[in-house]
Design a protein around this nucleic acid. Sequence first.
DNA 1: CAGTGAGCGAGCTTCCGCTTGACTT
Length: 788
Amino acid sequence: MHRFSYQKCKNIMNMTKNLVIVESPAKAKTIEGFLGKEYTVRSSFGHVADLNSKKLSVDVENDFEPQYEVSPDKKKLVAELKKMAKAAETVWLASDEDREGEAISWHLFKVLKLTVEQSKRIVFHEITKTAILHAIENPRSIDENLVSAQQARRVLDRLVGYELSPLLWRKVKPSLSAGRVQSVAVRLIVDREEEIKNFTTTSAFRTQAEFQLINGENPQTFTAEYSERFKTFEEAKAFIEKQVGAAFTVNSVEKKPAKKSPAPPFTTSTLQQEASRKMGYSVANTMRIAQKLYESGRITYMRTDSVNLSKLALSSAKNEIEKLYGEEYVKIRRFATKSKGAQEAHEAIRPTYMNNSSIDGAPEEQRLYDLIWKRTIASQMSDAQLERTKVLISSTLAPKDFVASGEVIKFDGFLKVYMEGTDDENGEQSSGILPPVSKDDLLDLLEMRSTERFSKHPPRYTEASLVRKMEELGIGRPSTYAPTISTIQKREYVVKETREGEKRKIQNIVLKNGAIEEKELIENTGSEKAKLFPTDIGVLVNRFLMQYFDDILDYNFTANVEKEFDEIADGKKEWNHIIKEFYGPFHKKVEETQEGSGKFSGERLLGVDPKSGKNVFVKIGRYGSIAQIGDTDSEEKPRFAGLRKNQGLETISLEEALKLFDFPRHLGEFEEKEVSVAIGRFGPYIKHNNLFFSLKKDYSPASVTLDEAILIIGEKREADKKKVIRIYEEDEEVQVLNGRYGAYLVIKKQNYKIPKDVEPANLSLEDCYAISKDPKNMPKKKFARKKK
DNA sequence: CAGTGAGCGAGCTTCCGCTTGACTT
């Protein structure tokens, strides 16, 4: 339809009639396959323009005008796209159909210097040929209102983050951060810990009996629980004693049909939860593996809040289920999203090809794929049909009934493939199959026991359950769940820890063969696996923000501003009016807090040091929690000591704090140099001749002796000798050493890589100097660390 | 990785949301 000149053909690589720009390169590749030769598809790799990260970049005096620039890592890309756009007849802006996607198209329009005539905006929710062709036939223009809504979101987050963070640097500690999303995530964890602290454990006695049919042909036994729980051991004991010699009869049998339905296909959040529950993956790990599956074309896009499946996916799921399990297992369903603020620009996470029930590749990729395949397939399968049975059993010597419940699967349906995991840690077993019993059947009592059961505090969050809560509150987006979880850990507001539990005694009374026995059982309680705990600094920052900015920390803050963003998108409100309403009071509060309040160190007076008569405090210092003897403004300099890893500001006692000052402890002399033991940031260590030797677990810093210290020094010297591959007499500052990652070169305490093609042991001194001069062997630059 | 912590007051830190690579001292 259009004839190319010879001139144009020469430049065919850069020359295309139609340039389509999408957000993701993997998507670009797929779509290019759907479109003809006259289309070139490229990716913007997400946003191309943003506010400068060094400055506020919002003109608060001038209607909050944002100052955008091309992101530093996108300069090259933008230049390239610009060139291609200039040569193209039409540029199709095909970023996602959500607030951020609209803004990406708008930024592309601006930075590529496009015209309305030359460009078209298209959208699609699924990557299928039909959807793409349909989109091309129905272009629209950029939705300015939606762009404004994104702008409001961006500016609000910048103002909150870049005004609150510096306030924290001044009032609490440098380099801290606060934001609309991360600060609420921290609050959730701090609040939960508070709930746990205030939780009072109670216990009750649950009584269970094991029965068997008398004279029945079925020897199967089953368990029933007495309908009442006893508050005390005495009550439980009295009850059990009374049951000696009682007769037991089936009082009633009730059967009810029930059904179970499959869970919807995966979104980012539910995938993270299931991978955590079933495989123990961290959210970052899950996303890393999912990204690989996406890039290799195995699954659809992994950052999505939609539970929707394309028609194509539904019909191929149907085929697959029919083929594998039969027609009666098929039930095509459309799920509706429940989460707040979902924008549904993509499909749910599903296999690209439903007929691939398994894939090759790394084991972790296979496992995650298997999970996704099963979940997707199961979501289109029939309900499981169950029969629930409730049997009431009466005792001639008890006022109430025993209850046995059972569940039988009549038709497995989706359960054939997949069962959603649970966060329930109580591990209550689901009731199994009951033997066939009928009313008035007589039962033999085999055993009865009443066991003490303790109530459980609300569970601490895992990474994945925190994501679920955030999604529920509408805080954060699929693309930010994993990064946010990592930020609050990097800032040391929270730590992910596995803690050993404690042993607890539980009382137990057993009636068997007419005899009663009292037993004390031991159970493990309070153990936690990969749970999120708040740190001192997390608690302190949360308290600071709650005191001065409780409106932003409100669990509904995001949900409320989202409503306003929606009104902007609908053209009902101006974006900068919304920002102005917020910023006025907010900024005033920032200034008041800046000037009004002093340092917020969480200082707590523990008491008086009996030795010196001075006050003992704990507080947050530059590097974490510290104890202090003596007042800060006193003549004499106060003494400091860091708290141990397992000690907290809130919980440490005066005695424990004073013990911290027992270090450094002088042990004596060795080789005419002093030997001392102390405790640093990374645990206890021996210091000798300005060298440090970490103290292994088998020694305690409080009791280690000079002789033991000398032994440790000797061992370390031996180990260091083995580390040395080569030293040079001519220049003692040059060493070739053996490290964790193989041989490396050290010159004047500076490390260098050794090129792979040389044998480290054969390096001459000149070789070493040459290596050190080559810039490609330079160590990677670390974040500029403060020098003292 | 480094074994401190206030103070001198340079210059640094920071948000959320969209996308991948480039790194493996």
